[in-house]
Design a binder for these strands. Structure first.
Lengths: 210, 210
DNA sequence: ACAAAAGTGTTGTTACTACACCCATGG
DNA sequence: CCATGGGTGTAGTAACAACACTTTTGT
């Protein structure tokens, strides 16, 4: 039951995103984001760690703290939202849902997913954040599919490669991916130079096509 | 005295910045940022409003929530930090200190000021956020001084005007500023087209000189 | 006339997009 | 030998920095 208290509860929530099958997905626990209440002297990240295997995430950053006392019907509760990113093969408990066709979510969780998506889109353009969605090694086409799903607009493989190599984000790596049944030239493999967030180009971005 | 509690207190803190006399300044209350404790069901912004005349600010946005239980010696206390911006003539209680030569501050407040400065610098480059530091009407030289102080690097008046007009951020306004004793051509007045935050150029920025 | 400050014209650079073309493989 | 997918070469473009030049004022 909703009732007033003289002190709020505080939860840490995470919108964990990944790209799989050309689609940007978010990890849900029922119709809510995974989260945990802050119950003892610890950081919000530590509380979140009780709801989520943080070591399976390639990246975690804070989004915002939502404090409207009416944000939930359960009473006075603050929520600090996080953006988590995982490669497609990460093992995480819960169900993945396409961000574009979410079921109705509890409280303000839909807004949190939107904020997470917006943050991801922005940072993909001027940081090396792609590393957190990609596997260790990949072809440019595979990376392109990740970017297209995450950005929501088309990206040319040609230019994606050149931009990211020019910025020193991507480096070629030994080996090739064998072509499929229908043939085609074997694709060279690449990998991210760094696997921690870096602002690689403060003053540029991947532009959407006209 | 520091002691453990089973529930944390929560404060809202603000790093309010302005530019005056070629210097970026932050509003302090003693050797701390102004702030207030969240004591009843209200938003963090409402709590902040008890410590600060929010209507004197031209812009307010959330920075981050700091949750390390050891961030203060007073015990378990969360802090949600805000960035506030004010024009040079805003009336606000407290003392202004140059950001470049701050006294030692309480708890983690120095880090919060650094985060505020970083956020301001970034957003000045790809949004219209300059409006929040500038008066209603101003000359390009006056605006240049604000940008130089806030960004920390030199900016040419020529290019500043052209960039901001090209992006539709600035518009010419009637009137001229009379020259000083030493002469010079009277300066045309400009003003910001919008006085709410807008992302004006997702894909560009004011570059520092080489 | 001359210094000072504001504003304009112009050139060059850079990071990008777009697209034509070439390469390596399977059937 | 041709379809398929990967990769390169190259031209065009937009936004910008840099700087020489012109304009308008005060003394």
């Amino acid at each position: 039951m909703a009732h007033s208290r003289d002190t709020p509860t505080h939860v840490a929530l995470a919108a964990v995103l990944r790209v799989r099958d050309h689609s940007l997905e978010v990890l849900l626990d029922g119709n809510a984001l995974p989260g945990a209440e802050l119950t003892r002297p610890e950081t919000l990240e530590a509380a979140l760690g009780r709801a989520l295997e943080l070591s399976a995430l390639a990246h975690l950053e804070q989004l915002e703290t939502r404090s409207d006392p009416r944000r939930t019907a359960r009473g006075w509760e603050l929520a600090t939202a996080y953006l988590g990113l995982a490669p497609a093969d990460a093992e995480l408990a819960g169900r993945w849902h396409a961000v574009g066709a979410l079921p109705p979510l509890v409280d303000d969780h839909t807004r949190i997913v939107a904020a997470a998506q917006a943050r991801l889109r922005a940072k993909l353009s001027y940081t090396n954040l792609g590393f957190a969605l990609a596997p260790e090694a990949f072809t440019i086409s595979e990376l392109r599919e990740i970017f297209v799903a995450a950005l929501g607009y088309d990206v040319s493989a040609t230019n994606l490669q050149r931009v990211l190599v020019r910025r020193g984000v991507l480096e070629p790596v030994a080996g090739h991916r064998a072509p499929g049944r229908s043939g085609g030239r074997p694709a060279a493999l690449f990998s991210f130079v760094a696997r921690r967030l870096e602002v690689t180009d403060e003053f540029a971005a991947l532009r959407p096509p006209r």
